[in-house]
């Protein structure tokens, strides 16, 4: 069993790599969540062109391989669009990689959000019309809070998929857990292939622990949400005057 443990110095390097991986994941998650909300709602829009663009984006983001999207984003796009968007030049691989992974996540997330909005009973939307809520209010206060319970579990799985995707950043020379591992290998040549195998077993376990962490966070969010649903402490679109209702 002791053969499977690395030295503290090696763990310190892997810890730095893991932090970088989590940072890339956070960036990709923020962009991915934003895109999935916008595109997922956009796919149900009444306007045909909004639906068309959203559909095109979803098909593109889900159809392309994440590693190919990543290499295009990191290598080809800064050269091709660098003159038009100077911002893209000199961006670190971590930022561009997070953008690529966020685009990828947006495509899958949009389908999750679209599906769960469609799963909300039709009467809810009709009730909103009867209550004269605006479409934005309907989405913000009625549909999305209910859809959130359906969204969370698949979104957790998707986030783990993106966590696995962050390892690809090392292929395009970005720094993350996988790159930290490869840096370690360079200094381990004396220990031979067996030592490297042990290193990879450790790295696999770190990824496993990270994934379980993401899983746990989503479970926690689900539990908090369920409790709030039972206590009915959500915010309401119109201020409800309890005293006035009770008095009448």
């Amino acid at each position: 069993m002791e053969d499977l443990v690395l030295t503290p110095g090696q763990y310190a390097q892997l810890w730095n790599g893991a932090l970088a991986t989590v940072r890339i994941l956070a960036g990709a998650f923020a962009l991915g969540l934003f895109l999935s909300l916008v595109v997922g709602v956009g796919r149900l829009s009444e306007r045909k062109w909004v639906r068309g663009i959203s559909f095109g984006f979803v098909e593109f983001a889900r159809g392309i391989s994440s590693i190919i999207l990543l290499t295009i984003m990191v290598i080809a796009i800064p050269i091709l669009l660098g003159d038009v968007f100077p911002w893209l030049r000199g961006r670190s691989v971590a930022v561009l990689g997070a953008i690529a992974l966020g685009l990828n996540m947006g495509g899958y997330g949009a389908e999750i959000i679209r599906g769960s909005i469609l799963a909300i009973p039709k009467g809810q939307g009709e009730a909103c019309i009867a209550l004269n809520l605006s479409p934005t209010q309907r989405l913000r206060f009625v549909v999305l809070p209910q859809a959130l319970r359906i969204i969370l579990p698949p979104m957790g799985n998707l986030t783990i998929e993106i966590l696995k995707g962050t390892a690809l950043v090392s292929v395009v020379a970005g720094f993350d857990l996988m790159r930290a591992t490869q840096n370690l290998i360079a200094g381990m040549l004396a220990q031979g292939a067996l030592g490297v195998t042990v290193l990879f077993i450790n790295v696999l376990f770190i990824y496993f622990i990270l994934a379980q962490g993401v899983n746990g966070l989503f479970r926690l969010a689900e539990r908090v949400l369920d409790r709030r649903f039972e206590q009915r402490t959500g915010r309401s679109a119109v201020p409800i005057n309890v005293a006035a209702t009770a008095g009448s």
Binding site: K164, G165, S170, G192, A193, V196, T197, I201, F208, A211
Partner: peptide, 21 residues
């Protein structure tokens, strides 16, 4: 669960060094 939640990239590296070892 373990194989599902670890990146296939790392698994490929692992398989490669395992074969080498």
């Amino acid at each position: 669960e373990f194989i599902r939640s670890t990146p296939i990239l790392v698994q490929m590296f692992f398989a490669q060094v395992l074969v080498r070892a």
